[in-house]
Design a protein around this nucleic acid. Structure first.
Length: 486
RNA sequence: GAGGGUGUAGCUCAGCUGGUAGAGCAACGCACUUUUAAUGCGUAGGUCUUGGGUUCGAAUCCCAACACCCUCACCA
């Protein structure tokens, strides 16, 4: 940002005004301002019939200013919306000099009578005027707001007040997360916090960030998933737990990927993936009901219909339907994979199958679809199906072609888990960047005994994207990661 | 990491096949006590992202760097 010594011309002009305000004995950076009512609350309480006229106290930022000489109209924005102020020289004679020095972007507090203008606009006819904060930088253009994507992300503090729809979207995110917490709390789930800094980054196959603890002189990993710690809590006797917090993955950035993202994981003892499916559907339906008001949401080119019940389709059925071959006919699968441009030479059968699935099937899953019963070998932390041991009791929920939730009946056999881990660790050579290691203490925990359980993970950012019709993850994260300037 | 696009005044944007920089808003000055993106008149505002090159001449053409956006890859 511009430093005071080489301040831009606009900043200089504003700073001069600031000095004049000081010379008039007014503090341009005010103090506490009590009994503030929100613009929205003032609108709601207003009744033109009441005599004497109602009064109101309001504070906020000046976003529009119409100076008509001895009368100034200001549009003031606070967290709830906007309200018009009328400042007349007659009512504010003693403060008029200071008032004439305030401008767009300043933060002020006012008190006065409520009334309507002759065009019917609710207006606070200001009698007491308090400058709360002088702004010494030019605000963005009043009509278009701040459009430059880079500036919007780098200076979100401007984006938030210059573009009301941005504030609206983030408020929606905040409210949705609050609804999720209440929903789970009502059902007896404990919210817990598990380590973000881990000595072994487990619970997923992803590239971690590495950091260093000086006093202990050890490397630590920022977590890629909380899963293994939450399951330790099941061992400890917490039967229903969840965590909403950040995961970190040292991978590519895209409209659907930010290096740090908010993950929710839920674990319920004595449950299975069917129970997690019901929970997922009910939770998302609750969010839509409370915050969207319509079961149909436009997301990019898709119109998503969230009407219940949602489809539940086995993985193999979708595979056969869209991949042009039977999932069990490996020769045909490999042939179709090659045709789709997948280099299958070094891959196991299951990996080829999954690549082809991602390539051919995902783009068809627009309305909410639970893809159920995954090939067992793709799921090292999942319990196999009783009916068919080749399959894992796992589902992924797809909405608008993107994966929103991943859940399974948790594997609680320490011997099988150990075997899955060791074969996974062996495969590490194929992709050296991807972190795989054996969490021995987790195996120890399983040996003490973890109750059978259902587990569920939901990417909160992506869920918010879908429910707010936002196609770029950066528009639902307040401060997305950008490269530093220069 | 690969490919494509963008970068011009504080902000939002024009600027044609190369001829020396434009508008609206904001700012500054004047007028105005019921405006709604207030209005009218006037003024000022630029290392055209950065660095090279081609050319008599570059915002414009070429090369490179930087940042952002999009697509793909890794992944959620």
């Amino acid at each position: 940002m511009t430093e005071p010594q080489d301040a831009g011309k606009f900043e200089q002009l504003r700073t001069e005004k600031l000095s004049k305000i000081k010379q008039l004995g007014v503090d341009p950076y005010g103090h506490r301002f009590d009994n503030v009512e929100s613009a929205d609350a003032i609108r709601k309480k207003f009744d033109a019939a009441v005599q004497p006229p109602q009064r109101a106290i309001c504070a906020g930022r000046i976003v529009l200013l119409r100076d008509i000489g001895k009368l100034i109209f200001i549009t003031l924005r606070d967290n709830s919306g906007t309200i018009q102020l009328g400042l007349s020289k007659k009512l504010l004679e003693t403060q008029w000099e200071v008032i004439k020095l305030t401008e767009l972007g300043d933060i002020i507090g006012v008190e006065g009578q409520l009334g309507l203008t002759k065009t019917g606009e609710l207006t606070i006819w200001v009698e007491k005027y308090t400058l709360l904060t002088k702004s010494v930088l030019q605000p963005p253009e009043k009509f278009h707001g701040l459009m430059d994507t880079e500036l919007r992300y780098r200076q979100r503090y401007v984006d938030l007040w210059a573009n009301p729809e941005v504030m609206q979207r983030f408020k929606k995110r905040i409210e949705m997360i609050s609804t999720i917490r209440n929903f789970l709390s009502e059902r007896g789930f404990f919210e817990v916090e598990t380590p973000m800094m881990q000595t072994i980054a487990g619970g997923a196959a992803a590239k971690p960030f590495i950091t260093h603890h000086n006093a202990l002189d050890i490397d630590l990993y920022l977590r890629i998933a909380p899963e293994l710690f939450l399951k330790r809590l099941l061992v400890g006797g917490m039967e229903k737990v969840f965590e909403i917090n950040r995961n970190f993955r040292n991978e590519g950035i895209s409209p659907r990927h930010n290096p740090e993202f908010t993950m929710m994981e839920i674990y319920q003892a004595y449950a299975d993936y069917n129970i997690m499916m019901e929970l997922t559907e009910l939770l998302v339906a609750t969010l839509i009901e409370k915050h969207c008001g319509n079961m149909k949401i436009q997301f990019g080119d898709y119109e998503i219909d969230f009407s219940r019940p949602w489809k539940k389709t086995p993985y193999s059925q979708l595979f056969n339907q869209y991949c042009g071959c039977d999932i069990n006919d490996i020769a045909a699968v490999r042939k179709n994979a090659k045709a789709a441009g997948i280099d299958d030479a070094k891959m196991d059968d299951e990996v080829v199958i999954n690549k082809l699935f991602e390539e051919k099937v995902e783009k068809n899953l627009v309305n909410p679809t639970f893809v159920i019963d995954y090939p067992g070998k793709l799921c090292p932390l999942t319990k196999r199906s009783k009916a068919n041991p080749e399959l894992a009791e796992r589902f992924e929920l797809y909405i608008g072609t993107i994966e929103v939730a991943n859940a399974y009946t948790e594997l609680n056999d320490p011997a099988v888990q150990y075997e899955n881990f060791t074969s996974q660790v062996k495969g590490a050579g194929e992709d050296e960047d991807t972190f795989r290691s054996l969490d021995e203490d987790f195996i120890t925990a399983l040996k003490y005994g973890m109750p059978p359980a259902g587990g569920l993970g939901i990417g909160i950012d992506r869920l918010v994207m879908l429910l707010t019709g936002t196609t770029n993850i950066r528009d639902v994260i307040l401060f997305p990661l950008l490269k530093p300037e220069k």
